[in-house]
């Protein structure tokens, strides 16, 4: 046993051992039989990886069901090694799991899998997002006609939009509890809006230009910009739906987006 390093560097060595499997450096500082110490490090490592995999399974139940337990656990293990949780809250572990899946060679035969994962993460984040009250519609009604095209909106923190070239919503719905995994549709490019209302996840399938409209509003574009050039279309219905669902939370006029 060599001279004890400072606590912080000892903890860093311990973290390397349990996260990256690099046992030797920390073993030099552990008392007792090295083989026993090595086995004990292994317990920590496997408990941590199992916890991470459990957190991922809670956030990505449909992906887990789609690929099965063995495949999912191995993907979770590799992901946990490559991208250890950045925060102590395991609910936040998995943000880059969809990107990991899109580059995971063993998932190459399922090119839609990463998009299903994106949809699940959007739902997961939506359920954890902050609450916010709808905007003051009386104040909105007082905006004179000339100022209306320049209105910008802040959308609800739980609002998420997932745009996919695959029928991800059909796949997601088919893999909810009680369904056997057979989707109602096999084609489609799904644009899915997800949000939380009264503590429950809500979702709707949007038309492409509706999705582009919501995307533009979320970027802080004005109503006129978001409506787009060219053929006028009924974006009023979409705006009304957003309002009706409590998803318009603030508005501002002119150059700057609402805080």
């Amino acid at each position: 046993m060599s001279a004890a390093p400072a606590l912080a560097s000892l903890q860093a060595l311990f973290a390397r051992a349990v996260v990256a499997g690099e046992d030797e450096a920390v073993l030099a500082h552990l008392a007792g039989d090295p083989e026993t110490a090595r086995r004990r490090l292994g317990l920590y490592r496997r408990a941590i990886l199992a916890n991470q995999a459990g957190a991922l399974r809670a956030a990505f139940p449909v992906v887990a069901r789609l690929v099965g337990e063995g495949f999912f656990d191995e993907a979770a293990r590799r992901y946990g090694e490559a991208s250890p949780p950045a925060r102590a809250d395991l609910n936040r572990h998995g943000e880059s799991f969809p990107a990991f899946l899109s580059g995971y060679p063993h998932a190459a035969s399922m090119p839609w899998l990463a998009d299903v994962a994106r949809l699940e993460w959007a739902a997961h984040e939506s359920l954890m997002a902050a609450d916010e009250a709808p905007l003051d519609f009386d104040a909105l009604a007082r905006v004179e006609a000339a100022g209306q095209p320049c209105l910008r909106f802040r959308l609800h923190p739980s609002l998420r939009l997932v745009r996919s070239a695959w029928p991800v919503l059909a796949i997601w719905e088919a893999n909810q509890p009680g369904r056997d995994g057979t989707p109602d549709r096999e084609e489609g490019a799904d644009d899915v809006l997800a949000w939380r209302e009264a503590g429950r996840l809500r979702y709707a399938l949007l038309a492409p230009r509706e999705a582009a409209f919501v995307e533009a509003l979320a970027r802080g574009e004005t109503l006129a910009e978001a409506a787009g050039e060219g053929e006028p279309w009924d974006f009023g219905t979409m705006l009304g739906r957003l309002a009706g669902a409590g998803l318009l939370c603030a508005f501002s006029r002119g150059a700057a987006a609402p805080p």
């Binding site: 519609f137 009604a141 095209p149 006129a224 009023g236 705006l239 009304g240 739906r241 009706g244 669902a245």
Partner: peptide, 20 residues
């Protein structure tokens, strides 16, 4: 377009729509 925006806002303010 301005007219359309006006009526869009009127709809939003009425807020009778909704995805449900």
């Amino acid at each position: 377009k301005r007219l359309l925006i006006g009526s869009a806002l009127a709809g939003a303010i009425a807020a009778g729509l909704g995805f449900a």
